[in-house]
Simulated assay, not measured.
Amino acid sequence: MPLPLERLCWIDAGHNAGLVARYEVFHLPALFLVKDGHFLGALQVRLTHSDLLAAIGEALLRPAEELP
């Protein structure tokens, strides 16, 4: 699926409890956007091409948040 991303990482919550705790993951799957080291938050979106593009575009317009 072509997306405007340099890298997409899949993290197995069962093997990375530290990341799950740090990012306060409550539901799986969970998507988070980080750009240039800035945390732009969670993406609450269906995993379809058009929905992902829209959610990424919206997230890029909001100010960076502090990491959880």
Rank of each mutant, 00 (worst) to 15 (best):
M1T: 12
M1N: 14
M1C: 10
P2K: 01
P2N: 03
P2W: 00
P2V: 00
P4K: 11
P4G: 14
P4T: 14
L5K: 03
L5G: 05
L5V: 10
E6A: 13
E6C: 08
E6F: 01
L8K: 09
L8G: 07
L8Y: 02
C9R: 06
W10H: 01
I11Y: 00
D12H: 08
D12R: 06
D12Q: 11
A13Q: 03
A13D: 05
A13S: 08
G14S: 01
H15Q: 15
H15L: 11
N16L: 11
N16Q: 12
N16V: 04
G18S: 13
L19P: 02
L19E: 10
V20F: 04
V20Q: 05
A21C: 05
A21R: 09
A21M: 04
R22C: 03
R22F: 05
R22E: 12
Y23A: 04
E24A: 15
V25M: 07
V25Q: 03
V25R: 00
V25E: 04
V25S: 08
V25C: 10
V25I: 15
F26T: 09
F26I: 02
H27C: 09
H27R: 08
L28S: 13
L28K: 04
L28F: 15
P29H: 05
A30K: 00
A30C: 14
L31C: 09
F32M: 13
L33I: 07
L33K: 00
V34Y: 07
V34C: 06
K35W: 01
K35Y: 01
K35D: 10
K35T: 01
K35H: 04
K35C: 02
D36P: 02
D36E: 15
D36K: 07
D36S: 13
D36G: 13
G37R: 03
G37A: 12
G37E: 07
G37Y: 02
H38Q: 15
H38V: 13
H38I: 08
F39P: 07
L40T: 07
L40K: 10
L40F: 07
G41R: 00
G41M: 02
A42G: 11
L43K: 01
L43S: 06
Q44M: 08
Q44G: 08
Q44I: 03
Q44F: 08
V45L: 05
R46Q: 15
L47Y: 03
L47D: 08
T48M: 11
T48V: 11
T48N: 10
H49R: 15
S50R: 06
D51H: 14
L52T: 01
L52G: 04
L52F: 02
L53N: 06
L53G: 04
L53M: 10
A54M: 14
A54H: 10
A55P: 03
I56P: 02
I56M: 09
I56F: 05
G57L: 05
G57Q: 09
E58R: 12
E58C: 12
A59K: 02
A59Y: 03
L60I: 06
L60T: 14
L60Q: 13
L61I: 02
R62L: 12
P63W: 01
P63D: 14
P63R: 06
A64D: 05
A64P: 06
E66K: 12
E66C: 15
E66Y: 06
E66M: 11
E66Q: 14
L67Q: 08
L67P: 03
P68A: 14
